[in-house]
């Protein structure tokens, strides 16, 4: 691993962040809607207040949020925000800053998302490895159509089914939220148990969706790998089937499987947004959804940039540990 390679990767990361920041900045600008005006109008309608002065107020607020400035200035400003990790005030939850809103939601998403994706990856990969192994028992094959089914049904539809079955009909798990209204957040066993109980259904929806895909992908990779010459030769060496399975077949099929995991991060985040919304889970996903509805550009911008950053970091981390998995990859920087 050379510093030069690391430098290249970080430059690439910056380029991705810059592109994402630009797109994120531009797309909302294409919308004809005006978040401040809409909010004020809403308030005016609800309060039955006088409509006069609405435009003046809109302009004043726009100024405050930096929305009245010329586009290029706003753009530079937006880039600066990314660099400083400071996205200003939330429009919908004023006077809270975007950072503080995100800080409250982030742990929930990380907890739910990372746990789900890791569980899905490990179980899916192991299941797929067994499914693609010629010596596996036949009954295992029943998992192939099952995997196809769960990976074909979007995570939020799975979530609906789970809610209906386990929360609504059987009432084993709570319908929504991250913890009971009556519970106070603290580091106690009862609270942790409460959180776990609330997390099971949304996590299950995410896991089931991801797991099927991971299993099918690994199965395909295993079938390909077991057709390789080095597996035939391993057989000819009279190795124990267990060793051939783990050290020859799985070990090699794992390489593209890990790459695939990184590629699927985007889809996974998208699913998390929908599932969180469905379960009113107080994470980033839910927040994205609500910030789109109320056109909280600042918040939306902050969250998307955090997510893009997270994906970039995850990719970088996998890239850096990849040479440990595959001796053929060396970042000599030559």
């Amino acid at each position: 691993m050379s510093l030069r390679y690391l430098g290249k990767r970080i430059l690439l990361l910056l380029a991705v962040m810059w592109t994402a920041a630009s797109i994120n900045f531009l797309i909302p600008k294409l919308s004809p809607r005006d978040p401040i005006k809409e909010r004020l109008e809403q308030a005016a309608m609800m309060g039955g207040r006088n409509q006069t002065g609405l435009q003046a107020m809109t302009d004043a607020y726009s100024q405050q949020y930096g929305l009245g400035e010329p586009l290029w200035k706003q753009y530079l400003h937006a880039l600066l925000k990314v660099v400083q990790f400071d996205y200003g005030y939330s429009i919908s939850q004023y006077p809270r800053t975007v950072n503080s809103v995100i800080k409250d939601a982030l742990p929930w998403t990380l907890g739910l998302g990372i746990t789900s994706i890791l569980i899905a990856f490990f179980i899916g990969t192991m299941l797929g490895a067994l499914l693609g192994w010629p010596r596996s028992p036949r009954w295992l094959r029943a998992f192939v159509p099952a995997s196809m089914l769960t990976s074909a049904v979007p995570a939020f539809v799975l979530g609906f089914l789970l809610i209906y079955l386990f929360a609504f009909q059987l009432r084993i798990f709570p319908l929504a939220g991250a913890y009971s209204r009556t519970a106070t957040p603290e580091w106690s066993l009862t609270f942790i148990a409460d959180v776990a109980q609330h997390a099971i259904l949304p996590a299950l929806a995410l896991i089931l969706f991801q797991l099927g895909g991971q299993a099918l992908q690994m199965r395909g990779l295993m079938v390909m790998t077991t057709g390789e010459d080095f597996i035939t030769f391993a057989d000819a060496k009279g190795l124990r089937p267990r060793r051939i399975f783990s050290r020859y077949a799985v070990r090699n099929a794992l390489l593209p499987q890990v790459t695939g995991l990184v590629m699927s991060l985007g889809t996974f985040i998208f699913s998390t947004v929908l599932v969180e919304t469905l379960f009113s889970y107080p994470g980033l996903g839910n927040l994205i959804n609500s910030s789109i509805q109320v056109l909280d550009y600042n918040l939306l911008y902050g969250i998307t940039m955090i997510l893009v950053f997270a994906v970039c970091i995850a990719t970088l981390v996998v890239d850096l540990i990849y040479p440990l998995l595959d001796p053929r990859i060396r970042y000599e920087g030559r």
Binding site: T232, R247, R251, N252
Partner: peptide, 11 residues
Amino acid sequence: PQGAMNSLNPV
């Protein structure tokens, strides 16, 4: 083996 090129475990 016939295909020595790929008959060794690459990892």
